[in-house]
Design a protein around this nucleic acid. Structure first.
Lengths: 229, 229
DNA sequence: CTATAATATTGTACAAAGTACACTAAGTGA
DNA sequence: TCACTTAGTGTACTTTGTACAATATTATAG
């Protein structure tokens, strides 16, 4: 397909901010770059969009190629288009985020040589990242902080069965502040979107907590109502 | 500046959804196109991004060239990147929105021949728009519906001095539902971000209402708190 | 078996915010 | 001065948010 107006052509990329939650810590997925510019630097998984793919498709493909992860639902959140954000030319990027449960200890394995490796890194103490990726990450963090207060995205980060304490720890990690235990439970249970299971936590050396599941049906009914913290 | 990886080049555009509020009606700014494709169709103001301008700068420039409007603060809200959204080739677009007061009866006058004219159109009964612009508009409308519930964007749509009834009518137009007068006033006045003036409405053939101003100082203090409707 | 250590679980009183609802006041103009 | 139109106001009730601490349960060590 021939472009119409060559003087307006730009290079276009996707960057992904993938959040995970593991042992009480919020993490994001980084790659170590294997190509210039910023060779050997840490960066968000990101690459160029081809002409024959939608940006949503490109996001899925790129994440897969750089990390091995497939079938991750990502949501677009911002385009970054400063002229000099890429040292070698004009590159506009659209950033996506996703939330991911880490329980399966999913294998991370780049499928291309563009990334040396992919790995999880705690969001606290992030090192300097390539390009404007630190800025992109910050914007994503702000986005999920807001979003967790009105949509049940937290459940995407937890294993299917979880305890209320785990849920609370996650909220605290994202919001970066302590919440009151009794009030948190009251509020969560009141929403009626948790299903209490007959099972209990296993393998802990203290009183085991009840396990819960997120009840998608009930949530769908309440969809217009928003949560707030 | 030479592009690095020619096979990844795309054309890149900006589209603007500019909301205005006039005589109780929510409106948006449209242009009539003067170029193929979609010649003579109505469309959102939008054009291509040059290689040497940031996307934010491009948005301001494009709005100015197509409508004559200057110094409008726009906020980016979504990128649209389906492969076939433009009939003649791959064009990725980033959409911006803004809120504008129409009181000054600002003159709309395209500076380029790309648009025959620019004009306000009520958001109800919008005609079919060029490209995927109807979809872009819908997304913008959803965005401001959400946003008006937690940020005082309503004030950008009203004249500097306004009555509480005008403010309420605006909220009702954006949210597309009736609100209770007493509760609305109680809530608004409670936020403490309105300054009551010594003036009254003029030129009405019934009891004149008090005029208010939005108090930016007080709002800034409360910035972390959000409104909700 | 008992004691200890660790976390799970629970309730109440108060404050703040949301909601439903209808009459009186003020200004205009005939 | 009367009729019309919109401005302006309050109360009772419900819901939600918030501050705060003691008891229950289980695992493990001795």
């Amino acid at each position: 397909m021939k472009a119409l107006l060559p003087s307006f052509e730009s290079i276009f990329s996707i960057d992904c901010v993938i959040f995970g939650f593991d042992r009480g810590e919020l993490k994001i997925l980084l790659i170590e770059r294997n190509e210039e510019p910023f060779k050997d630097w840490l960066a968000l998984p990101g690459y160029l969009v081809a002409q024959d793919e939608s940006i949503d498709d490109a996001a899925s493909r790129i994440l897969h190629e750089l990390t091995g992860l497939k079938d991750i639902f990502m949501e677009q959140f911002h385009a970054f288009g400063d002229v000099n954000r890429h040292p070698q030319g004009r590159v506009i990027t659209v950033a996506y985020f996703a939330m991911l449960r880490l329980n399966g200890a999913k294998e991370l394995k780049p499928l291309t040589s563009f990334a040396k490796k992919a790995f999880w890194h705690p969001v606290n103490n992030l090192p300097a990242l390539a390009f404007d990726h630190s800025e992109i990450f910050e914007k994503a963090l702000q986005k999920i902080k807001r979003k967790i207060t009105y949509q049940p995205i937290a459940f995407e980060l937890l294993p299917e069965k979880f305890t209320l304490t785990q849920l609370q720890t996650l909220y605290e990690a994202v919001l970066n502040r302590k919440l009151d235990k009794r009030n948190f439970r009251k509020k969560m249970l009141n929403y009626g979107i948790l299903k209490e299971l007959d099972e209990k936590q296993k393998g802990v050396s203290y009183r085991a907590a009840k396990l819960y599941k997120f009840d998608k049906r009930k949530y769908a009914k309440l969809f217009k109502n928003e949560l707030s913290f």
